[in-house]
Design a protein around this nucleic acid. Structure first.
Length: 480
DNA sequence: TCTGGGGTCCTAGGACCC
DNA sequence: TCTGGGGTCCTAGGACCC
């Protein structure tokens, strides 16, 4: 193992199927800058240079909501993502409230523009970004709507570019002696293309592994390009607080602090057995990461593992309100599952009690289904446990998803057990106390295909997935 | 701050089987 | 009957991420 030594040339410690002579990887992390706000500016130039807050729940009469994205101008007022809207409005009143005739009105210079979230539009823009990324890298992992890892080892290299000694060193590089690498040039090219073709700014980090690339992209936001060549990774990470290590959240940060571990360097040097005691398996892994040692491959994004919907409400114990909410959430989750062509085998709810006690309950079915009525029924049944409980948030989730053929064969095999033993088939028919509902009936309702119309927008994700599973083994996560 | 919404992964304990 | 594993599946909760 490479242990705590942040040596430059560590290769996969035996685990990988990579040959040992593989070149040091070049991994880019592309992170769009305040993406939602940038998207809004793309179609509303009046928002340029203004403090922009994109969020939900700030309309008059609404009080439950949070900031999704704040532009950097808004961040200067202390507004941050995930902050309750009420708090954001205190720090930065909305422009519309700056009535010039009202002596108590806020100074317009200290107000912001509040815009509701329009996810469909952001997804369109993200599609253009992804088109660029597809063109720039064969191996990509899209982590979220505004973030992706690229493995561009086969497109570029860590070799030093050109021979111009006056070239400025890469911004995040270890020392002034660093020369510009080919990798930096390639990352610059990717970044510029995103800006040019999608119209939104990105920050890019380049490093020999994923976690260092991630930290690098964060190091000079917005509009940053930070390059951390092999050999300077540990040095680059060393001074950072542990919270900057990907995977260290508030709880872990606190635990580490109690062990006297404050920086990435401390974490890298810490005794890994002790870390394992305090944090479980995660501890040593975080330590390796902090040391610049992260051999995770950039693996393509897989199919989702679960789908959920949740909704906050003014804390209430009212049974009718809760049931209505859960019914609506259940319908929505079931609809989305059907749209994406996926079956589910587990149905669950979440009930959050004030102040913030999260309860989850789930029930698995004997086999995968697509059955909105059943989602509602099970969800309501699980909710019954909380009939007396005041809740501030409710959620419904389906999991144990199955994207394989939604066709007849699979379904037929469910209760007749005639399935061709394809792994996930029911081996235990007893589990669900599904009371009087004859499962067979429900399932076969649409055995010839979902009752819904299915021809529609071509090229939907669901379509692509299905095609994938059709042609060949296509394991999960294989769509590209 | 009285904390939104949609995800992922991990762990621990119990049931059940061999 | 007591004690001992190994393995899988399930649920619940926790931590984290964007």
């Amino acid at each position: 193992m490479t242990g705590g030594t942040p040596a430059a040339g560590e290769t996969l410690p035996g685990a990988g199927d990579e040959d040992d002579d593989a070149p040091e990887r070049v991994v880019c992390h592309v992170d769009m800058d305040c993406f939602y706000a940038s998207c809004e500016r793309l179609r509303r130039s009046d928002l340029n240079d203004e403090p922009v807050v994109v969020g939900m729940g700030y309309e008059p009469g609404e009080s439950i909501g949070a900031v999704a994205t704040a532009s950097y101008e808004a961040r200067a007022f202390g507004v941050e993502s995930a902050m309750p809207i009420s708090k954001a409005l205190e720090l930065l009143p909305r422009r519309a409230d700056a009535d010039p005739d009202d002596p108590n009105a806020p100074d317009p210079e200290e107000t912001g523009r509040y815009v509701p979230v329009d996810l469909d539009f952001y997804e369109d823009v993200a599609g253009e970004v992804k088109a660029v990324l597809r063109d720039c890298a064969d191996t990509r992992r899209e982590v979220s709507i505004d973030e992706a890892y690229l493995d561009v080892t086969d497109r570029t290299a860590w070799a030093v570019a050109g021979d111009d000694p006056d070239d400025p060193p890469p911004s995040g590089a270890a020392g002034p002696a660093e020369a510009r690498t080919l990798a930096e040039g390639y990352a610059r090219y990717v970044k510029d293309r995103i800006e040019r073709e999608a119209g939104v700014p990105a920050s890019v980090g380049v490093a020999p592994n994923m976690s260092a690339a991630k930290v690098a992209s964060d190091a000079d936001k917005p509009d940053g390009l930070v390059v951390v060549p092999p050999g300077s990774v540990a040095e680059f990470l060393a001074p950072l607080p542990t919270a900057d290590v990907h995977g260290v959240g508030p709880v872990t940060e606190e635990t580490l602090a109690e062990l006297g571990i404050e920086t990435a360097a401390d974490l890298a040097a810490a005794d890994r057995d002790r870390l394992a005691e305090a944090l479980g398996e995660r501890g040593p892994a975080l330590s390796r990461r902090a040391a610049g040692d992260d051999d995770r491959e950039v693996t393509p994004t897989g199919l989702p593992k679960s789908l959920s919907r949740e909704s906050a409400l003014p804390a209430t114990a009212d049974e009718a309100t809760k049931r209505e909410t859960v019914s609506a959430l259940a319908a929505d989750v079931a609809r989305r599952a059907r749209e994406r062509g996926c079956l589910y085998r587990t149905i669950g709810i979440k009930a959050v009690e004030p102040p913030f006690d999260v309860n989850t309950r789930a029930r698995s079915l004997p086999g995968p289904v697509d059955d909105p009525d059943l989602v509602e029924e099970v969800a309501l049944d699980l909710l019954a446990e909380f009939d007396e409980t005041r809740v501030r948030k409710l959620g419904v989730r389906v999991s144990k998803l199955d994207f394989a053929e939604t066709d007849q064969a699979t379904l037929g095999g469910f209760d007749a057990a005639e399935g061709d033993g394809d792994g996930g088939r029911p081996r235990r028919g007893d589990r669900a106390e599904r009371d009087d509902r004859g499962d067979g009936g429900k399932l076969t309702d649409w055995v010839g295909g979902p009752p819904e119309r299915d021809g529609d927008e071509s090229g939907s994700i669901a379509d692509r997935d299905r095609r994938r599973t059709d042609d060949g083994q296509a394991s999960l996560g294989d769509w590209s």
